[in-house]
Structure formats: C-alpha cells, structure tokens
Design a protein around this nucleic acid. Structure first.
Lengths: 353, 353
DNA sequence: TTGTACGCGTTATCAA
DNA sequence: TTGATAACGCGTACAA
C-alpha cells in the first residue's frame, strides 16, 4: 500500500510557527478574536505552504453544526426532481453547504433508512419530497432539532414548513383552458392516485368541469412505479388504449404529468390518431422533454428549479437564524401554451345549431 | 427558539446502565470484543428506549475514515449523468455509504471548489467526470490518499483508475450500421469537439468512412454549453439547418449525442423533411427520451446506470481492501435499432446499374 | 470480562 | 494579544 503524507493539522502549523494551536485556530477559522498582524501573516503563510485543509469533522463535532443538508426525493432520474435538486445544490454551494441526495424510489422503508443515515451524519437540515403519508416522522425530526422543509407533496403533518404547488388550481387552469378552447368531452388520465398531489389535480379538474356543467371522465391506472420515467411513459400509452376502448369519444385529454402525456401522444400517433387535430393533449409539469416532441406539449408549468432554490434558501435561513416560525409557500402554476391543444369549433353537443 | 432534547451519547447510556462508556461503545458498534450477554442486552435495551443515534462525526474523526463518497459530474439535469448517479447512489447505499453530488456545470473553477469542499469533509473516495483536462489534480488527490475513479472522460492522466466507453468503437459501429443500410453520404453532426469523448466518436466515424471509401462530412457547432439539455436540443436544430444549407445531400446523419439527434429530427420534421424516409438519424447515448419521440431513435447505448454501479463498486473495493492497483475498464457500446434509420435501396453512386 | 485513560482535530473558556 | 486546557462523541490500548 502506498504511503501517503500525513494530513497537516493546526497543531502542526502551531509547532512550525512557534505559537499555540489556539492562535492558529483563531486565524485559520476567521475568528474575530484579535491576533497580531505579524503572527496572522506568518500562520497564513505556513498554512498555504503546507497545503493545510481544515478538517470539518473536528470543527463540527466541537461546534455541533453541519454544513451538509440532506435531500430525499423519489428518484433523481425523474427530470422534475433533478431540476429541483439542481436548484437546491446551486444555492447550497453559494453558502458553502453541500448536499447529500437520496433516492427513496417510492419506498417508505428506504426513505426512513436514508433519514437515519442522515441523522447519523449529524445533518441539521432536510428537504424532503416524502412518500410516507404518515406525518409522524416530521414531528420526530423536529424534536431532534432538525429543520425540515417538505416539498412537492402536500403533507398532512401540521407544524412543518412546506413549499408546494397549487395543484388544485393547476388542475383547474388546465381544464378551463381546454374548455375555453371549445372542448366538452375532456378526460383526465392519471397514474394511480395514491399521492395527494394527483388527487389535488383531479379535484381541480372536477371543479372546473362542474362549473362548466360538464361530466368528468376519469381514466386511472392500476399500478404505479415511476421510479423510472419510462414507466410513466408506458402508463400513458396504456391509459390511451384504455381511453380508446372506453369509447367515450373524448376530444381532449388532460394527464397528471408530462411523461404520461408524452406516452399518450405516442400511442395515439402510432394508431394514426392525430394530435391535436383529433384529440388534444394537455400535460402537467413543464419538463424540458415536452418541447422536444411533436407536437410540442401544452402543459402546466411547475417552477421546479425555482422550487429547489427557494427550498434551500428558506432552509438555510431557518438553520442559521433559528428563525423558526413555520411557513407554507404555495407556488402558482403557469400555463404554457404550445401545440398539443387546438381549439374545437362549435360542433359538439352544446354548440348552437 | 424551541427547546430540543439533548442528543444521547454512549456516555449517557453508560451512566444509565452503570457501565463504562467503553463497554457501551463495544456493543453499540458491533465490535467483536467480548461483552457479557447480560450487559449487552441491557445496553441494547437502553439504546433502543432512548432512541440512541450514533454520531458518525466522532467515530470518523477517531478512526479517520468516512462513509461518504463524492461525485462530480457536469450536470445532474443531463439524463445520462442522472442515470450514472442513480447507479452510484444505489450501490453506495447497500454498503451504508452516502453520496455527495456536485454539479460542475462545465466550469473548472467550480470543479476544484467542490473538490476542496469534499476534502474538508474528509471524503476518502471520489468519482469524477472531470471537465478539467489537466491531469495534475488527480495526482494531487492520490497523494492525499484519496481514491478516485474517473468516468466518462478519457483523461490523459496516468496512474488513475478509469471507467470509460469505447467511444471510438461506438462511432465506428454507428457509422458502419448506416453504411450497411446502404447510406453513402453520411454526415457527422457534433457539438464543439472540446471533449475527448467527442473527438473519439468522430475518429470512429472517420475510420469507418475511410474503410468504406467514403468521404466524411463534418458539421460542427461553434459554441457549447450543455449544462442544460435544451441547449443540446437547440444545437441539434441549428446543426440541422447548417447541414441543409450546406447542400451536401446527406441521406443520413450521425450525431454526438441523443439530445442533439432529437433536435435534428425536430428541425427536419418541422421542415417537412421526413425522418427516416428522406434522412436517417442516428444518435449516441441511449437515454430514455429517445424512445419517446417519433420516430424512436436508433442509437448507440452507453450503459449509464451500469457505469455508475460499477464505478461505485470498484471505488468501495479500493477504499476498503486498499486494493490499490490501477485499472481501466472500457465498457463496450451496443447498437440499439429503433426506427430513425432506414435502409437505402441501391440508388446511390455505388449501387449497381 | 470490564474499566481507565487518552487521542482524533477543532474551538471555547479562562488565565496570563 | 497569546497560551494552556478542556471539551465535542467515539474507539482502543492497556490495566484490572
């Protein structure tokens, strides 16, 4: 085995400079404690020459702090979450923090395993897109002095700060847009509604349909494992077939996420059903891929990257200022009109004749 | 500020059990040091009741180890890298390791800033898809006793373990496939060739063209910042226009990555040039989105997820066994035939007549 | 089989 | 302005 140079510590530097370790610590950690200019320069010089790298373990053990935050998401391969994480990571870096990313893969056990590992690493802040619907864990974390922010998932747990989207409003906006375009038979295609967010989108859809006096058409998947974007894509294809088989003659479909929508478009196209001419398709998420397909996907945008930025900023503020009052931020949806939705001239049941 | 319970340590448990901290340490850290069964049970019981969570900082400071590995990639938003990271993260978890992900955004300064942060955190292992072409950093890390594995980027640095693809062979395979399909005028469209991998793919293309007696057609972009997949997509569109303007009458194009290919297809389609009937398109990467577009993209698959798994496995083995002999693994490309490439009946210059 | 004592690298307290 | 010393939580010789 290779021999490696021993790491240089403040004691080494202290010896070389004929000062105490305390003094070295004071200058190297930018303490405001007074140290004479001459000593300061001398120490700085030696530190530079010896390539001194501070050991955060010692520092953090002593001060009981941490410059690492934990992030738990279902899967980093989901482009929505990878954007969120990028937002988190970039703002963390600016404040000299570092992030540990954990993929829970929609497995509650994995999620708590990860959280335990993070606790052992003495992480003091956590951003989590939880899949456990039991809010007890959050309470427990709070008791341990961990600051946590829940994102993307409307958790039932009280007493916890969260950043969410207004899924209900998003669902309404999407549906109203389709209605405004003259559609009357509008189907909602969704992966299994085992998540609050999906139920909320559905609620928004229902409300918008109701206020327009239209009858909802729900097509729901049975299974769900979107740790893999492809599975959402496949689910979309399956749901499209299911829709066709149901013979409800929808002129527009609205899906619970973009991947699903892309699957739907793919399936319809391959059956020579033209999108949007015969069936309009509206997604939900605003991921990049939506712009790359044909036709470009009309969708509801969730500001993913911004959500990450905001979550991280709020978290670091909480951790440093001990500014501990809870908050709940609700990000607003935004309609992105592209070309997968087309207006339907008055030819349906409700049109004048 | 809320009052939080003090964290329980082995000393607390020792006091409650009327034993020494040493004994507690021995049982709670699964030492093979002998402890009587009665004491062991007593301690375990108390630990469970008090929700004891070991402090890894103390442990790692003492033993000078770390269960965190660092990963540096250009951008997690790039689906190729997010798959790699998922592979890394999942195998790390199985061995109770945790990963810190860093996005260098193709900025060498950011890259070294991150590496410094990781050093301060006493990380002992690093997987890095570097963008710095200077190999000096690797040498320096090795001297500090850090185990590092370079991936995806054929670094010039000697004395470092790496996992790469055979980009040259990938370029050949793609090109030969197009040639086998009867194409003669085959263009290579690439983002700026400032990365070894892209130059290697180009080399493979050149070799295959040469051995078939065909003349290469190179279309290269000027700028390059693919921290954002959309920019590769846009680059692809731009290159497609450039190709068309050049009036070289290519019947097939081969691109340096899938995003680019998708951009090309998009641009061609929007100009009513049919893919693959008029122009065949071949990508490189094998990312999921390739299956979601129309037509599904024929491409060269890089085993991204497997690469992450392998890199992490090798790294952990190196770290634990001190099994320090260097290695270089070259993963082999695989052709995935889908529908963006079609065979060209004998109507070109070389066909019989 | 158990306990004592020390050190990992750092910072904070107190004296000088 | 500087230094000696005691922690932080843990593991481990060494002694008992």
């Amino acid at each position: 085995m290779k021999r490696m140079k021993k790491k240089v510590t403040i004691h080494d530097i202290a010896r070389m400079a004929n000062v105490s370790a305390a003094t070295v610590s004071r200058v190297l950690s930018n303490s405001d404690y007074p140290v004479s200019q001459s000593l300061r320069e001398k120490i700085l010089k030696i530190a530079a020459e010896t390539n001194y790298v501070p050991n955060l373990l010692g520092k953090q053990l002593k001060k009981n702090t941490s410059t690492t935050i934990g992030v738990v998401v279902p899967s980093i391969v989901n482009p929505f979450y990878s954007s969120v994480i990028l937002g988190i990571e970039q703002t963390a870096r600016q404040r000299k923090y570092t992030v540990i990313t954990c993929n829970s893969m929609h497995d509650p056990e994995l999620e708590s395993e990860y959280i335990r590992m993070l606790m052992e690493k003495q992480v003091k802040g956590l951003i989590i897109a939880s899949i456990a619907n039991d809010g007890g864990m959050f309470k427990q974390l709070a008791d341990m002095g961990i600051h946590v922010i829940a994102i993307d998932q409307r958790v039932d747990a009280e007493g916890i700060s969260k950043i969410d989207f207004d899924f209900v409003k998003g669902g309404q906006m999407a549906t109203r847009h389709l209605i405004d375009k003259g559609h009357r038979r509008i189907a909602y295609l969704t992966a299994r509604m085992d998540r609050p967010s999906r139920r909320s989108i559905f609620r928004g859809y229902q409300e918008a349909m109701k206020e327009a006096g239209l009858e909802p058409i729900l097509v729901e998947a049975n299974a769900d494992d979107d740790h893999n974007p492809l599975s959402d894509f496949d689910t979309g294809r399956a749901l499209a077939r299911k829709l066709l088989a149901a013979k409800v003659q929808a002129t527009a479909v609205f899906t619970c996420n973009d991947m699903l929508a892309i699957g739907v478009i793919n399936e319809l196209s391959s059956r020579n059903i033209r999108v949007p001419e015969e069936i309009s398709v509206m997604g939900f998420d605003g991921i990049d891929v939506g712009q790359m397909i044909h036709p470009p996907l009309t969708t509801i945008k969730q500001p993913d990257y911004e959500m990450g930025k905001m979550a991280c900023t709020m978290l670091l503020n909480m951790m440093n200022n001990e500014n501990n009052h809870q908050f709940e931020i609700i990000l607003q949806p935004k309609l992105i009109e592209r070309q997968s939705v087309v207006s339907r001239g008055g030819h349906s049941e409700t049109s004048g004749r």
